[in-house]
Each structure stands twice: as structure tokens, then as C-alpha cells.
Amino acid sequence: TLFEALYDYEARTEDDLSFHKGEKFQILNSSEGDWWEVRSLTTGETGYIPSPYLAPV
């Protein structure tokens, strides 16, 4: 399942991933609570992002 960003987000740590509203992601790991490890389909980068900022496509 692909997810889309509902809002912009600016990374706060080196493990976070900055992204823009509308960017699409592949979920790599969603078992860590509200922070999911994802791969951006736009940039190819991986990192953690807050799951409340995402919605299924």
C-alpha cells in the first residue's frame, strides 16, 4: 500500500525524512508506533516520518 503526505514536514533529527504535501511513500516498517520508516517515491530517500501526516493512496 502506498501512502501520500497530507502536510509538509521538516526533519528534526538525522533519522527523520523531510517531505512535501502530496509526496508518495512506500512503507518499510510501521511497527515502531507513530513513526514509520518509509522510502520516498519522489527522492528515493529513506527515513522516519510521523504516520499522522500520511493517508493511504
Rank of each mutant, 00 (worst) to 15 (best):
L2A: 05
F3E: 01
E4S: 05
E4P: 00
E4I: 14
E4M: 10
A5Q: 01
L6I: 11
L6Y: 04
L6N: 04
L6F: 04
L6V: 08
Y7F: 13
Y7A: 10
Y7R: 09
Y7K: 08
Y9I: 03
Y9K: 03
Y9S: 04
E10R: 10
E10T: 13
E10A: 10
E10I: 13
A11R: 09
R12P: 10
T13W: 14
D15N: 14
D15V: 14
D16R: 14
D16E: 15
L17G: 01
S18H: 08
S18W: 04
S18E: 04
S18L: 02
S18A: 07
F19H: 01
F19Y: 05
H20R: 14
H20S: 13
K21P: 02
G22S: 04
G22M: 02
E23M: 06
E23D: 15
E23V: 02
E23R: 00
E23F: 02
K24Y: 13
K24W: 13
F25R: 00
Q26C: 13
Q26H: 10
I27K: 08
I27F: 10
L28Y: 02
L28S: 01
L28Q: 02
N29H: 07
N29Q: 08
S30L: 09
S30A: 13
S31H: 09
S31Q: 11
S31E: 11
E32A: 13
E32T: 12
W35A: 06
W35T: 08
V38N: 00
V38A: 10
V38Q: 01
V38D: 00
V38L: 01
R39S: 04
R39L: 11
S40D: 02
S40M: 05
L41R: 02
L41P: 02
T42D: 10
T42Q: 10
T43F: 01
G44L: 06
E45H: 11
E45L: 14
E45Q: 14
E45T: 09
T46H: 09
T46W: 08
T46C: 08
T46G: 02
Y48M: 12
I49H: 00
I49W: 00
P50Q: 11
P52K: 15
P52F: 15
P52N: 15
P52L: 15
Y53M: 14
L54T: 04
A55I: 11
A55K: 13
A55M: 09
P56L: 08
V57Q: 06
V57T: 08
